[in-house]
Design a protein around this nucleic acid. Structure first.
Length: 353
DNA sequence: ACGGATGATTGGAT
DNA sequence: ATCCAATCATCCGT
């Protein structure tokens, strides 16, 4: 405000001086009454138009003269100051916004997935694949895993090369703009602060591109995850021994095929699967058995005989070692129960035994 | 390629 | 929280 008024008076003062140089005092007074600023502008415009008629050499000479004028630095600094103030008053509020939460989320996810973190993929995935191929214990999951790792490494590589490309383009463009502005700052008032601001604007633009890259990378990782790590997709049948153990328990507890938490844990341990897998198995088994008992009759008999034989062996060993005390009466029950049909609906059946 | 088998998930009921 | 029932997605023998 204060500066601006000072500038205005200064400019009119200059204008007045110029006029005084040119003509007589009378005309000056007349122009002042008409409105001097308009006249000045008209003059300036005329001068600008005249430049286009000048030869290149003349224009260069004029430019040089202007650059060498002793008042030029002072004038430029004043103009820069005014510009700075105007810009700040227009949009000085939204400076230095905090880091975008969205981009932070994306960064965190990429870091967690090992895409943007320190280098650790690549070779190790190949090593895992080699180890799986070489032998040892080439479980299915490790093969799946190495496949997943390889795909992840691919995404990671694309991400990094794209990121590098963007960064390079960004710095190139920034340099270009900075050079351009520095060059132009010789002929028009551009403060270093303004250049800084321009650079910040460029960086913001490029970071929005970067966010798009991060977002699409995240999407790719999510798709990969859902393809490879979704348990349902890479379902493997349990091995024969595990199925046998589970079936044995199921058919020998046909009257009440609901293993307790402890029983589930033990079965899980025996079968090398999780407790929830045991629960799933029993859930599926119960419903499927109930739906079609006839179909499972053969299986039921098989396991009933099997447990009977096992029990006989155990009791034989026991009688060998100790006295022939109590033979497992449960075996006879399980054989008979398979013929009942809907055994585990008879909840009080166990009271017979 | 196809269909049944099978492990996992989902939604509702208790 | 657990179970049932339906359903999905994959496996696997033919």
């Amino acid at each position: 405000m204060d500066d601006q008024t000072r500038m205005m008076t200064g400019l009119t003062g200059l204008g007045g001086l110029a006029q005084a140089d040119v003509g007589d005092p009378d005309s000056v007074r007349k122009q002042q009454s008409l409105g001097q600023p308009q006249q000045d502008i008209g003059d300036i415009l005329q001068q600008i138009m005249a430049i286009t008629d000048e030869s290149l050499d003349e224009a260069q000479a004029r430019k040089h003269a202007l650059n060498c004028h002793r008042m030029k630095p002072a004038l430029f600094s004043v103009l820069c100051e005014i510009k700075e103030k105007t810009v700040l008053s227009i949009r000085g509020v939204q400076e230095e916004d905090p880091p975008d939460p969205q981009i932070m989320r994306l960064d965190n996810m990429l870091l967690a997935e090992g895409v943007s973190g320190p280098e650790k993929g690549g070779g190790s995935a190949a090593a895992a694949a080699a180890a799986a191929a070489a032998g040892g214990s080439p479980t299915d999951s490790s093969i799946e895993h190495s496949d997943y790792r390889a795909k992840l490494a691919q995404i990671r590589q694309i991400y990094h090369s794209e990121l590098e490309k963007y960064e390079q383009a960004c710095s190139e463009f920034t340099n270009h703009v900075m050079n351009l502005l520095r060059e132009q700052s010789r002929t028009r008032p551009i403060s270093p602060k303004e250049i800084e601001r321009m650079v910040a604007i460029i960086h913001r633009k490029f970071s929005s591109i970067q966010m798009q890259l991060k977002q699409s990378t995240c999407e790719a990782v999510m798709i990969l995850r859902s393809r490879f790590l979704d348990a349902r997709r890479k379902r493997r049948n349990f091995n024969k021994q595990a199925t046998e153990v589970l079936n044995e328990y199921f058919y020998s507890h046909l009257s009440n095929p609901y293993p307790s938490e402890e029983a589930k844990e033990e079965l899980a341990k025996k079968c090398g699967i999780t407790v929830s897998q045991v629960s799933n198995w029993f859930g599926n088994k119960r419903i499927r058995y109930k739906k079609n008992i006839g179909k499972f009759q053969e299986e039921a008999n098989l396991y009933a005989v099997k447990t009977a034989v096992d029990a006989a062996n155990v009791s034989a060993q026991a009688s060998q070692a100790n006295s022939p005390a109590t033979p497992n009466s449960g075996t006879t029950r399980s054989i008979s129960s398979t013929h009942i049909g809907f055994p585990f609906l008879l909840t009080s059946f166990s009271s017979y035994v």
